[in-house]
Structures are given as structure tokens and as C-alpha cells.
């Protein structure tokens, strides 16, 4: 391997790593707030990427056909709840978001965004994908939110099956690849970096800074952190676990849409690419310890680099190698937990 190849692989690894890091951050956020190990996160990325391609081609976004039935289903469930429990309100955040989602879906179907403005395309993608998070939370997770982690994981697996099963007829088995949003290369003292990489880095830094600001300097963000630290305590001081869960899912779908936009010009995205992406995001989180956001992001970057270098040396075994990254981490955890004492999570 010569320096040029190494540099290329490193660039590739960093771009992969950024996507894994975004996935990891979203998965960790959802896990801490709702205890759901959110394997569906990969589907959000795929939806974001595919929608960007469809919008660029001027086609009707298939995601609208997922969003609208989901919003309708959510409205129906809310109506059933209204009939059964008289005390629930007709006008709620949930119903508002359902109606908004319907409006967005109809808009995207009948007035697909025309023109080449990248900002318009990005806005369309984000608006179509983001509402899916809260809607999925309300339809599939809210009523079982106090079940065991295992049950919640199974619910997430079911949602993953349903989405993936619907995405095949909706998008077909072909790969999707978007036109680059930014072109060209930039010279850094003899090292050429692609503009897309710089763009990704900027978006990543912007998004993580924004998240940090939200979590540390706004009341809703602090409320979410409170829920992640102690669910019962947060409920006792009046933080609605319902809204917190929906907000975590909403942030996850937003991050998923952005990751999709970032990954779309770089590689072919297939209807079933999401699961492996989500798993690698998981690996990143675990390598980072599944507790801290900066560490999870760092772990994901490491995973991305390993992924790209492993692809060069042993492309067939690359996925095994990435998962082997778990072994030293788990071994360390295992050995430190050997003694008969220590606090059990009691799950």
C-alpha cells in the first residue's frame, strides 16, 4: 500500500465513520431516552438517500407513500383512544403532527419540487423523513414503553421488517446514487481532499454542535437528558415520557435523513442497506461504551476506518473484521465484571 492509497482509504474511512457516528448518536439517543435499541435507524438513512435521488430525478418521492398511511394509522389510533377514554384531548401534539405529515405527503405527491436548488431538495427530504420518527413511536412503541428491553427490541425488529418489506416493492431492488451536492476538490498543502468530504465534516460538526447546544442549553434538551438519566424521576417532576420519546424518535429520524443525504452521492444505496449500517452504528456505540456521545462518535469513526481498510485487505471478510472489533471491548467488560460482586443492572 502506498501513501496515496492509504490517504484514499482514510478519506473513505472517515466518510463512512461520519455516517456510522451519526447513526450511533441517534441510536444512543433513542436508547437512553426510551430503552429501544433502534435498529430501524438504518431504514431512515436509506429513506433519506433514496428520497434525495428521487427528488433530484423529479420523481414522486416514494417516502410519501410510507408517510401518509403511517399518519393516517396514527390518526385512527388516536381516534380509537379518544372514543375509549373520554378524557383524552382531540387537539394534541400527536394529531397536529399527523395532519402536518399528511399535508407534507400530499404536497410532495402533487407538487414535487422542481428545479435544481440543492437547498429545496434537502428541505424536501428532511420534511418527508423527520415526521416518521414520532409517528412510529406513537403507533408501535408508546403503549409498550414500559416493557423489557428485549420486548422493545423485538418491536423495533418488527418495524424494521415491515419497513423493509414495503420498501422493496416501493423502490425496487436497484441501487440508488445521488448527484453530488458539492463538486470539486480542495488542495490542503499538497493533499487533495474531496469537497464532499469537507461538506460532510462541516455538516457533522454543525449537527453535533447543535445537538450539544440543545442538550445543554435549552429546557426541552435538558428534559430529554433528565429522562435518559432517570425515567421515573423525570416523570415525577412533570416531564412527559410520551413527548420525550416522540422527541427522541424525531431527532433520530432527522439525523437519519441528514445521514441519508450525506451518503447518497457516495455509494449505491439499496432498499436493504439499512440494517447493516445500523449494526455498524451499534458497533461504534459499543466500542465507545454505549454511554457517552463523544465516545460513541469516536468509536464510530474508528469503525469506519477499520471498515474501509478491511475492505482493501480482505474485502470478503470485511464485515467479520468490523464485528471482531467488538471482541476486545466485550472481553474487557467481561473481565472487569468477573468478581462475584458489582451492581447488576437489574433488567
Amino acid at each position: 500500500m502506498n501513501p496515496t492509497v492509504a490517504l484514499l482509504l482514510a478519506q473513505d474511512g472517515i466518510t463512512n465513520g461520519i455516517v456510522f457516528a451519526l447513526l450511533g448518536v441517534a441510536i444512543l439517543l433513542v436508547f437512553l431516552v426510551t430503552r429501544v435499541l433502534f435498529v430501524v435507524q438504518g431504514e431512515f438513512v436509506v429513506l433519506g438517500a433514496v428520497t434525495l435521488v428521487q427528488v433530484q430525478r423529479g420523481e414522486v418521492a416514494g417516502a410519501a407513500w410510507l408517510l401518509m398511511p403511517l399518519a393516517l394509522l396514527c390518526l385512527v389510533l388516536s381516534a380509537i383512544q379518544f372514543v375509549r377514554e373520554r378524557n383524552s384531548r382531540l387537539w394534541s401534539l400527536q394529531n397536529g403532527i399527523c395532519l402536518l405529515a399528511l399535508a407534507i405527503g400530499l404536497c410532495a405527491t402533487f407538487y414535487p419540487p422542481a428545479g435544481k436548488s440543492a437547498w429545496l431538495q434537502i428541505t424536501t427530504v428532511v420534511c418527508l423523513i423527520t415526521p416518521m420518527g414520532p409517528l412510529l413511536y406513537w403507533t408501535a412503541f408508546r403503549n409498550i414503553c414500559r416493557s423489557s428491553i428485549l420486548t422493545l427490541l423485538f418491536a423495533a425488529m418488527c418495524v424494521h421488517y415491515v419497513l423493509q418489506g414495503l420498501m422493496l416493492p416501493l423502490f425496487g431492488p436497484e441501487g440508488f446514487r445521488a448527484l453530488p451536492l458539492v463538486r470539486g476538490r480542495i488542495d490542503f498543502g499538497g493533499i487533495w481532499l474531496s469537497a464532499q468530504l469537507i461538506f460532510m465534516l462541516c455538516v457533522f460538526l454543525l449537527l453535533t454542535t447543535a445537538l450539544w447546544l440543545v442538550f445543554h442549553h435549552t429546557l426541552p434538551g435538558k428534559a430529554l437528558r433528565a429522562v435518559s438519566i432517570n425515567r421515573v424521576g423525570a416523570r415525577l417532576v412533570g416531564i412527559s415520557s410520551d413527548i420525550a420519546g416522540a422527541a427522541a424518535f424525531g431527532l433520530a429520524s432527522l439525523i437519519g435523513a441528514v445521514s441519508g443525504i450525506l451518503i447518497a452521492p457516495l455509494s449505491n444505496v439499496y432498499y436493504d442497506s439499512g440494517f447493516l449500517l445500523a449494526l455498524k452504528g451499534f458497533v461504534g456505540c459499543v466500542v465507545g461504551g454505549l454511554a457517552s456521545f463523544p465516545l460513541a462518535a469516536l468509536g464510530a469513526l474508528l469503525t469506519g476506518l477499520l471498515d474501509s481498510f478491511a475492505a482493501f485487505y480482505a474485502s470478503a471478510l470485511k464485515d467479520s473484521i468490523v464485528f471482531a472489533l467488538l471482541v476486545p471491548m466485550l472481553l474487557y467488560m467481561s473481565v472487569t465484571q468477573i468478581s462475584g460482586r458489582g451492581e447488576e443492572a437489574g433488567e
Binding site: 428491553i149 449494526l279 454505549l290 466485550l330 447488576e344
Partner: peptide, 11 residues
């Protein structure tokens, strides 16, 4: 314990 076990077997 918990999710680490899930991930270990998953890996």
C-alpha cells in the same frame, strides 16, 4: 449484562 450481552451474541 443487558445490551452488551445482546451485542456480543449479535456480533
Amino acid at each position: 449484562s443487558g445490551h452488551y450481552l445482546v451485542l456480543g451474541t449479535l456480533g
